[in-house]
């Protein structure tokens, strides 16, 4: 099992969190803590770059939803970038493709 690594950087559109490793029951809360600690201004965009995420279980999906709610509460945008195929498939099954915004990579996701 590879540990979860989360790095934060600032893009022109707002904060970008890079999520690397396996996101599951054991560490979803950690991601959530990191996300809620990010200061968001109204009109900015919170981007989660999942390009390095090798696994995501239902707890991980919950964390993604919580991230979206956190952004919305701050009147900010929320987008996912580079969602791995497997996770994209799961997000489709649970219908989240209808309410989440996907971008192929974080460059696209951070275009103003």
């Amino acid at each position: 099992m590879s540990p979860l690594q989360i790095t934060l950087r600032d893009a022109v559109t707002g904060p970008v969190l890079n999520v690397t490793g396996e996101l599951d029951y054991t560490n979803a809360a950690e991601l959530l803590d990191r996300i809620t600690a990010v200061a968001l201004q109204p009109g900015r965009r919170l981007v989660l770059d999942l390009g390095g995420m090798r696994f995501c279980d239902s707890s991980g999906i919950s964390a993604l939803i919580a991230a979206r709610n956190h952004a919305l509460a701050a009147q900010a945008d929320f987008a996912l970038a580079a969602v791995p195929d497997h996770t994209l498939r799961v997000l489709r099954i649970v219908g989240l493709d209808q309410i989440l915004t996907f971008h192929p990579d974080s460059d696209t996701a951070t275009r103003p």
């Binding site: 999906i61 939803i65 489709r92 649970v94 219908g95 989240l96 209808q98 309410i99």
Partner: peptide
């Protein structure tokens, strides 16, 4: 059953 959403989210 495509398009059905997680229950409780919205």
């Amino acid at each position: 059953t495509p398009g059905g959403l997680l229950v409780g989210i919205l």
